[in-house]
Design a protein around this nucleic acid. Sequence first.
DNA 1: TGAATGAATTGCACATCGTGCAGTCACTTT
DNA 2: AAAGTGACTGCACGATGTGCAATTCATTCA
Lengths: 206, 206
Amino acid sequence: MEAEPLGRRERKRLATHHALRTAALQLGAERGIRDVTVEEIATAADVSVRTFYDHFPSKEDAIIGFDAWRVGQLRDALASRPPDEAPLEALRVVMAQFFHESSDEWPLRMRAINADPALMGRMFVSFIAYERTLVEVIEQRTGLDGERDPYPALVTAVATAAFRASMTTARASGGGLDPAATFDAAIARLSDALRPPAHEDGRAAC
Amino acid sequence: MEAEPLGRRERKRLATHHALRTAALQLGAERGIRDVTVEEIATAADVSVRTFYDHFPSKEDAIIGFDAWRVGQLRDALASRPPDEAPLEALRVVMAQFFHESSDEWPLRMRAINADPALMGRMFVSFIAYERTLVEVIEQRTGLDGERDPYPALVTAVATAAFRASMTTARASGGGLDPAATFDAAIARLSDALRPPAHEDGRAAC
DNA sequence: TGAATGAATTGCACATCGTGCAGTCACTTT
DNA sequence: AAAGTGACTGCACGATGTGCAATTCATTCA
């Protein structure tokens, strides 16, 4: 899907980026992000405070915010699903896959969220940024105009709602429920209601 | 529903609260909240900066955050819906009513959000705080245990998803679509899929 | 009525946040 | 080899959010 050689400079930048995120994740999971200063994170990653802000707009974003890079990845994944697949199903596959991808980060991220539940909110905000991109793809897939038809925004919002609810419930159950399985079940429940609307000419919308 | 005489002290506090919110709303709608300092808001409401922080944790909350008072109001409204009403329908009624209530604030709030779209995210986060309360009421209504059954969290998340999507679409359409009507339509669409699950003994859940 | 209580407001101090700017150095390009 | 570009850095500064002690005033209780 991509094959850039990636020069030394680029590699170094990515290394710094990763070191900062890891440090933030680690410290946030240990002591709660509120009790960690940007200076500590920067020191742990062995860069200056100023450099931290060149990579992330805030320490919270270093923990829960998702890069433009991953947004693009998600968009490509959704765009390359079979065109005849139901939108909600396509979203389910892509989101599950996305969850699986950075699975090593999730345990730390979850501990950080437990230490400071406000982070959950920040994470949902970042979902919204994703939604905007996903809605665009859904519009293309279905050929619907998002400014006139609420459908694309609705399916996408419902998909992330299912994702959110799964995480919340899994957290409330204290590990008794598997978030991934709960997510699948929730989507299955909703899929009947959210088949795309027919076009005005009667042609199916996807 | 309530009938507290409300002493002078209480009235003064509410007046201060309202003055601060109005000032924040006004200034935020005019110039965008990023370009407004807490000091300006406090001055406009004729109180000290320190007092501002006694009422709101941040200037963003003064614009979009909803009080504990309104949370309680919403909870009571939901709890007093007929017990045999479908959960999603009860949520629809209550949320529509909530939207209608502070209808004078919405135009300003919308302008503030247009001036700084990040506020939309903050608002959705505040929805999440509401969700927690609403989920509890839904659990009581349906008799389901939120730690074992994902249903209460799911219906509520879906309801707010519909609300969010309606606002987003209405905003994208540039006033062409009525958010309230779009919201109703979205809920209608989803209601079939989200009837509560039957209890294990076969009895209907609400 | 008069004293005690407690809540709202205030100024002050302080740690932290987030950003603009200019400079250095390493890598890349031509 | 020279010019150019981009990552990192220190510095300065306005703004944020919070603890603390003092003041004022509504409320309550003796």
